[in-house]
């Protein structure tokens, strides 16, 4: 089994996800099944190939630094679960 209970917890901690107990067991089984399937790709020789990120050869796109969209930020706070004037509200991060 590639993904043990322990490595599952490590990944879950990294991606900030909580799970119900029954969800965990099902998912560990599912993930291992998928990883096993994915590994069937290893029979293909890819030694001389470069990894591809995008199908077009992307280059940096530059433009003149002209201010625009001055109002783009407006209304964004309205979707926050909790906000105060122009700030998002989060629980305290630093403790005594």
């Amino acid at each position: 089994m590639k993904i043990s209970k322990e490595s599952f917890h490590n990944i879950a901690d990294m991606v900030k996800l909580s799970f119900k107990e029954e969800e965990k067991l099902k998912l560990i089984k599912d993930l291992n099944h998928t990883v096993e399937f994915i590994e069937t790709m290893n029979d293909m020789n890819t030694d001389s190939q470069e990894p591809m990120s995008y199908i077009h050869n992307l280059k940096n796109v530059f433009r003149e630094d002209v201010a625009s969209n001055a109002k783009a930020g407006q209304g964004l706070h309205e979707n926050a679960p909790e906000s105060m004037s122009d700030y998002y509200v989060v629980p305290p991060i630093f403790h005594d």
Partner: peptide, 24 residues
């Protein structure tokens, strides 16, 4: 707050793909 909000907000399939992607 992060973990519970995401844990409750996403369904099973979304969580499955996040976990798989992070593993890879």
């Amino acid at each position: 707050l992060y973990k519970k909000s995401r844990g409750e907000g996403f369904g099973y399939e979304v969580k499955r793909r996040i976990m798989l992607g992070a593993y890879m």
